[in-house]
Design a protein around this nucleic acid. Structure first.
Lengths: 114, 114, 114, 114
DNA sequence: GTGGTCTAGACCACG
DNA sequence: GTGGTCTAGACCACC
């Protein structure tokens, strides 16, 4: 991940980090589903505090760009996936049916990908 | 479902049924995720044999337009969903990670739909 | 604006105009914040004297239904806005704090409306 | 302000504080426009760290329940005010006209309150 | 005076 | 291992 921090930038550090990650996602350099570096590692790489990165990740999660899970890191959320699921939810499908669809599609897609 | 069968049509009946359903899906009259009538019911409605409909459904399933499950009928597949899942599979994500993403996004989407 | 004057109406003309505008506001045809036609234009449209319209506008302003300003015409007052401001005044907030609240909320509202 | 922290509560402290303030607002014990205690003071009162309270305030601000301003503290936002301003913005009024309305209404309201 | 942010270091919860 | 939170204390920016 190529992120840089500019101490002359009027934005706060965590904001620069959040904006930087947003830009990477927007440019496709961080693909949907890609894993982000652990908070501690990125903090070390950038030479900033762990909490600063955690704040950036939290902001991105709040905006729905990141999927963060305790114990297994953060990954870039999939807008396409969200769009598809939103369609199905709005169509009134119960969660169980949606999951069935997902499992079926996934099985078919992974078979094709062998 | 508005499907009609023309005995003068050179196409076989199951093909007419399959093509008719494709057209309904293409026109959006059968939305992604929508349930199709049970094989027996559609056969009765159209006055054709049960196996004819089953063959049509099988063809549509083979083409990926339908998701068919023993005991719970057929439903229109979601192209958007497939596209999203394909992206993630091609990105090299293991099934487990993809399912985590799906669950996370689904939770977020359903929360917003309250 | 659809206003009509009836010379057989026992009410005075300015009263008919004022009542007519009140009715337009009540029916929502003149929304809160909407601009009213200039005094001269409305007078010409209705074929009455300029002062008659001015009197009607003054009455509506006195009743708090219109906000009139030298040089920039009249507009329909916002009952909701007045209610909100009244609340804050009664809560003892000084004008400066209220204006700060207004500016903050306005900034937030206009951002969301982008 | 009556807030209490329960160390046995599974929610994080900042979440308890944020929820507590939300409840106070919902019950009307913190009126619209009311000032909240300074971050440092509330932190001292509750015996927690300054940052913990700051996090709670930030969350409430993000949700639009608080108006926070550098150097002059936090106050409860006015939902009524926001609703009124939203109406006017959606009606297409430019910021300048809206502010004129506000000033006019405010002048009228404060005169009545004398 | 006010809130905003950052750091260093700690402990917890999750998997 | 991962992120989440809290603390203590610092400095900055705004008014």
């Amino acid at each position: 991940m190529f992120l840089s921090i500019d101490t002359h930038d009027p934005r706060s550090i965590y904001q620069q980090v959040a904006d930087g990650i947003k830009a990477l996602i927007a440019r496709g350099e961080l693909a949907e589903g890609a894993a982000l570096p652990p908070v501690r590692q990125l903090a070390a790489d950038l030479g900033v505090n762990l909490n600063t990165i955690a704040t950036a990740y939290r902001e991105l999660q709040r905006e729905g760009l990141l999927t963060v899970k305790h114990g297994s890191g953060a990954m870039v959320a999939s807008r396409t996936l969200r769009k598809a699921l939103t369609e199905l939810v709005l169509a009134g499908l119960p969660k169980s049916k949606i999951l069935r669809l997902v499992m079926d599609e996934l099985r078919m897609v992974m078979k094709g990908a062998r």
